[in-house]
Amino acid sequence: MTDQPPQQQRVLITGAASGLGAALARAWEARGAEVLRTDRADGEGIVRLDIASDADWAAVLAYVERTWGGLDVLVNNAGIAGGGRLDVAGIDEWQRLVDINLLGAVRGTATFTPVFKRQGSGRVVNVASLAGLVHPAGMAGYNATKAAVVALTETTGHELAAHGVSAHVVCPSYFRTNLMAGVEGRDAALQQVMTKLVEDAPLGPDEIAAAVLDAIDAGTELIVPDDAARAAYQLKLTDRPSYDAVMRAQARKLDAVTE
């Protein structure tokens, strides 16, 4: 009797045409995984998926079932930057953030939960942000949707644990990516500040992706993959007055951009 070779992991990643999604795809492929790269943008090797479209999710589910017969890892990575101060951002901006950042992950998770339950195995990996844990001024819409993704992930983990499914949420600080390229919104001062933070970040997406896969291997559910994110979150947990002082100082600096 011979041992059967381990099954190649089957991984679906949204927003995989560029940035962290593409880096995660490369990292899993380097481990020998089969990766289905999906994105709203067209590109070589990309399967079309608008995460705000129920029809697109149904089509991708059918593709996965037909091609693989199941799925091992769902990575809800696609999302958009945005936000704006409370008296600047419009409800339409809030709605767009909710539809994409939150409901995109909800749609993906709901679509593949029956598959995971049937298999008795699987992983859901949701890419949130440090903004889901630490809430800077001027970013209420973005903060709220990313915090909701953190809550969604924890709930998913509790609900599906009995079915052999784990859930992991990724909360990085700023890293170099093209996230700001498609940003929309009325708060130009916030966009200016965020763009500089992204451009000046010390890490790129490949470094974040490597840390994410290592954390998943370790069974970590709340993944805070970089030093800057860990320091900010730790400050909030251990010294709330100092954390509040830092956040409010940043709020004053944001207001000063337009003065």
Score class of each variant (00 low, 15 high):
Ser121Tyr: 08
Val165His: 05
Val125Ser: 05
Arg118Ser: 11
Gly164Lys: 13
Thr156Arg: 06
Val124Thr: 03
Gly138Cys: 08
His135Cys: 08
Cys171Val: 07
Thr155Ser: 15
His163Asp: 15
Val124Gln: 04
Phe116Val: 09
Thr113Pro: 13
Val150Tyr: 04
Lys146Arg: 05
Leu179Lys: 02
Thr113Ser: 11
Gly164Leu: 13
Ala161Phe: 10
Leu152Trp: 05
Arg118Lys: 13
Thr113Gly: 04
Gly122Asn: 01
Lys146Thr: 04
Met139Asp: 01
Asn178Ser: 14
Met180Leu: 09
Val125Asn: 05
Gly120Glu: 00
Thr155Asp: 08
Arg123Gly: 08
Arg123Tyr: 01
Pro172Gln: 09
Val165Cys: 12
Thr155Gly: 15
Gly120His: 11
Ala151Glu: 14
Ala151Cys: 13
Leu133Met: 12
Asn143Gly: 04
Gly141Pro: 12
His168Ser: 13
Val115Pro: 07
Ser121Arg: 15
Gly164Glu: 13
Gly122Leu: 00
Ala131Phe: 03
Leu152Cys: 12
Phe116His: 02
Val165Glu: 08
Ser166Glu: 13
Met180Val: 13
Gln119Val: 03
Met180Lys: 03
His135Arg: 12
His163Pro: 15
His163Phe: 15
Ala137Tyr: 03
Ala147Arg: 08
His135Ala: 12
Val170Arg: 05
Gln119Cys: 08
Val170Trp: 10
Val125His: 03
Gly120Arg: 08
Thr177Val: 07
Val115Arg: 02
Leu133Asn: 09
Glu159Phe: 01
Asn143Met: 04
Thr145Met: 04
Leu133Ser: 06
Met180Cys: 07
Ala131Glu: 00
Gln119Ala: 09
Val125Met: 05
Val150Pro: 07
Ser121Asn: 13
Asn126Gln: 07
Leu152Tyr: 09
Thr153Ile: 11
Glu159Val: 10
Pro114Met: 00
Val134Glu: 04
Lys117Met: 11
Ser166Thr: 15
His158Val: 15
Asn143Gln: 08
Ala162Tyr: 05
Val165Gln: 10
Gly132His: 00
Val115Glu: 01
Leu160Trp: 02
Leu130Phe: 02
Pro136Asn: 02
Gly141Glu: 05
His163Met: 12
Phe116Ile: 10
Pro172Lys: 07
Lys146Ala: 01
Cys171Ser: 11
Arg118Trp: 00
Leu133His: 07
Leu152Ala: 11
Gly138Arg: 05
Val170His: 09
Pro172Asn: 11
Ser173Met: 08
Pro114Tyr: 00
Gly157Phe: 09
Ala128Ile: 02
Gln119Arg: 09
Met180Ser: 08
His158Ser: 13
Ser173Val: 03
Glu159Cys: 10
Val127Leu: 05
Leu133Asp: 06
Val124Tyr: 04
Cys171Gly: 12
Val150Leu: 08
Thr145Glu: 04
Gly138Asn: 07
Val134Ile: 07
Ala140Asp: 12
Val169Gln: 14
Ser173Ile: 03
Leu130Asn: 07
Ala137Asn: 01
Ser173Arg: 11
Thr153Pro: 15
Ser129Glu: 04
Phe175Gln: 12
Met180Ala: 09
Pro172Trp: 02
Gly138Trp: 06
Gln119Glu: 06
Pro114Leu: 00
His168Tyr: 11
Val150Asp: 09
Lys146Cys: 01
His168Thr: 13
